[in-house]
Every structure is written in structure tokens, then in C-alpha cells.
Nucleic acid binder design. Structure first.
Lengths: 216, 216
DNA sequence: AATGGGCTACCCATAAAGGGGTATTTTGAA
DNA sequence: TTCAAAATACCCCTTTATGGGTAGCCCATT
């Protein structure tokens, strides 16, 4: 990476934005765009093929959204640095992105020079965050009660109940019998609670919950 | 104990369950709840102080679990009769409870009347077991070989390593990449470690491991 | 009356996990 | 050196889990 130019893949469903970003990056002789994708599926296919140093991922895409793509990329073993690029500064998105393995979160309304500089920093392994984003994260961190990544309080009673049972190692079927509801319904609650907490599996949920309980 | 009401201590981390059980016992004029604890530590402190005739001990508690609490109580010289109350009918738990000095093992899904009757029997010195439990014990007795609950020490280095990663919430695929082996091999190790520990799923394994780590 | 959240339950699909087996290679201890 | 355990990797199969959708019902707020 020292002598060779850093490889970058762009993932955005707006051709114009990709083109602009590509030209912007082309100005730098130590970075080059080696792949482009207009959706999550293509990104998943191309990432392993090109194994870029950096992936710039749009958060707001049709179909598979950025967070979802991010998750799947990490699941697929992609170790490239990944920064999210978006117009949105929704708190939840930021937290979800970071907790799902994003290395940065930049807003599209940044000045091009600044954006380029941040991409530089990202390539060198630093976590990059827009100023507005750092505030959001800082705010989230200042609230000691609920952890940044996940709000236990955002769960409904039922979801919390089911999370507790997961943390005892129970399967959906067992939980269903325990609560006297169908296992399909349990699945729905699990689905929702995983999304709310930004976790990828019941195992993560169980571990997280147990640690949570242990701390209090 | 003949003329006076039998004294009982409840140990369960669910306040609701304690309350319900307490009210249930309050219906009987020959038994009274003299102490309550929501965790193993409190139980260890209160047991010598109140020296109850009977201790009803929840198996599935956060932090120090029921089995561990049971061991420590016996180690501390507590001679009260102790019955385990639980939702779990995991074979190993039953065996572990009995071999560690429990005088009974009841399931929480019993009918209240039946539960009360069993508690009565326990106070009078009889060993009480849920029906489903007796079968498990019988089966276990037929296989004298392997020791009760769970030996971390019986795991190979690789198995322990993988168990630790499971306790971090990782999937087999992720673990495979982490250790640079095939995910099929990870499955084999998981299979073996679950069998050795007498657990039914990676979630149980994760929870068990996290608790294990928290205690040490 | 209308809206929305929460709970229930199902549909569909794919991915992950679990449990049995065989087999090769490596490693360490007898 | 010989043997057994450990680690690796695959085969088979079934079960669980996950993620998307629609939809009805209840209840509270508007």
C-alpha cells in the first residue's frame, strides 16, 4: 500500500455520484477506483473478487440498504475498510453502521476536498467521522444508562422477555412453549429485537444480554 | 420442627416468582418464608444467619448459578434441606444438582398444588423429584462413567479456543476465518464440545461460557 | 373515527447449525 | 517406534435460525 496505489470500490446506486467520486479520487495518484457497484448484490459479488483496500458504501440504496450490505460484507469475510457515505445523519444509522463494523461515516454534503482527505485517512486505517457524526456518537456515549450500540429500553416488554430467555440458551421452539405462543411469533420478536439492538444473531444477543445482566 | 412452623428461604432472581412462591407457602400454616435472596451471594450470607429448614434454590440465576450456589452452601456447612427449582430439565443439571447435595429437583411448570405438596415432602426429609426428572436420574445412573455437569478441563485446546469464540458471539464461518480452518472443521469441534459439556446448542454454550468467565 | 404501536400468526426464501459418519495427517506419550 | 488422541476435512441429512412480506386483533392516543 506504500508503493502501490490504494484500491477502492464504490457502492452507490447513483451513477452520477459514483462518477463524481471516481473523478475526485482519480486526482490522487495514491488511490484508484478498481470496482464499482450500483447495489448491494453486486457489491457482495465484487468485493471478494477485487478485495479493495477501501469500500465506500452508500447507506441509502434501494433494495438491500447500506447497513444490510455492510453486515453481509462482514459476514462474507470482507476485511476491507468500509466507510459509509450518506445524506442521512439519523442517529440510529450511525450507531448501526459503527456497531456493524463500519470504519467511518461521512455525509455527502461535505466539501469534496474534505471528503478526499477523509478517504485518505480511512485508507491509512483511521476511523473517519463527519463532525456532525462525532457529536451524535459523543452524545450517545454521554448517556451512561443505555449503551451506545443498543437500547435495551427501546425493546417492547415482549421482546425483552424473549431476549432474556435467549440469554438462558433457549431455542425459539422452547421459548414458544414457555410463553405459550407460536414459534413463528417468537421468530418475529427475535427478528425485531436483533434489528433494534444491531446484533447479528441470537448468540450475540445472548452474550450481550448476559454481560448486560452481569454488569448491573 | 414438629410444633413450630418449618422455616424456608427462597433463592431466585425473579422477584415475581419469589413473591408467588411466598404467597403460596403463606397459605400453609406449618411453613413460613423467613428469608429471600435474589442471588447466590446473598444466599450464602443469609443461609447461616437464618439456618432455614429448607432452601428453595433457583437453578438458572445470573452470576453464580444454582449449582455453584449449591456447592458453596454445602461447602459452608449449610445443612438445610435444599431443593432446586428450575425451568430446565437438562440432564446434566439434574445429575449435578443431586451429586452436589440437593435434596430435590422440581420444575417450575408444576401445578402450584403439586409444588406445595412436594415442598411439604421436602421439609419432612424426603427427596423430591419431578416425574420427568426421575427418569433422567435413572438413565444417568445406568451410565456411571462420566462425571456430572461439565468439565471445562475435558475440552481440548482447540475446543476451548472455539468455545471462547462462540462466547463472543461468532458464527462457525467467522470462527473458521479467525482460526484459518474450514468451517466444517469448526462444526466438528463445536459438535464435540457440546457433547462433552452436555449442552444442546451454541447459545447454551455461549451463555454457559460467559457465566463461567464472569465467575473466575 | 382514524392512526399507530404492539402482539399475534402465517407465507416465502436462504443461511446456519447440529448430529451422524469416514478418513487423513499431525502430535505426543508410552 | 507404535499407538491414541487431536486436528483437519469432507460426506450425508435434519433441524434451527434469519429476513422479508402480509395481515388480523387489541388498545391507546389523536
Amino acid at each position: 500500500m506504500a508503493t502501490e496505489a490504494a484500491t477502492i470500490m464504490l457502492v452507490d446506486d447513483h451513477p452520477l455520484l459514483r462518477k463524481g467520486l471516481k473523478q475526485l479520487i482519480a486526482l490522487e495518484d495514491d488511490m484508484q477506483v478498481v470496482a464499482e457497484a450500483s447495489n448491494g448484490q453486486d457489491a457482495l459479488r465484487l468485493a471478494p473478487e477485487y478485495d479493495p483496500d477501501l469500500i465506500v458504501l452508500d447507506l441509502n440504496m434501494q433494495g438491500m440498504d447500506g447497513i444490510e450490505t455492510l453486515k453481509k460484507l462482514r459476514d462474507a469475510g470482507v476485511t476491507s475498510r468500509i466507510i459509509m457515505l450518506t445524506v442521512s445523519d439519523a442517529d440510529d444509522d450511525v450507531v448501526a453502521a459503527i456497531t456493524n463494523g463500519a470504519d467511518g461515516y461521512l455525509l455527502k454534503d461535505m466539501e469534496p476536498e474534505q471528503l478526499l482527505e477523509q478517504i485518505h485517512r480511512a485508507v491509512t486505517g483511521k476511523m473517519v467521522l463527519s463532525e456532525a457524526i462525532t457529536e451524535i456518537l459523543a452524545t450517545a456515549l454521554r448517556q451512561p444508562a443505555k449503551t451506545p450500540s443498543s437500547q435495551l429500553s427501546s425493546l417492547t416488554n415482549r421482546e425483552y422477555e424473549i431476549l432474556s430467555l435467549i440469554a438462558k440458551g433457549m431455542s425459539n421452539k422452547v421459548i414458544a412453549r414457555e410463553l405459550d405462543i407460536s414459534d413463528g411469533t417468537v421468530k418475529v420478536h427475535v427478528k425485531h429485537l436483533l434489528k433494534k439492538l444491531g446484533l447479528r444473531s441470537r448468540v450475540e444477543a445472548a452474550v450481550w444480554m448476559v454481560n448486560q445482566q452481569g454488569e448491573n
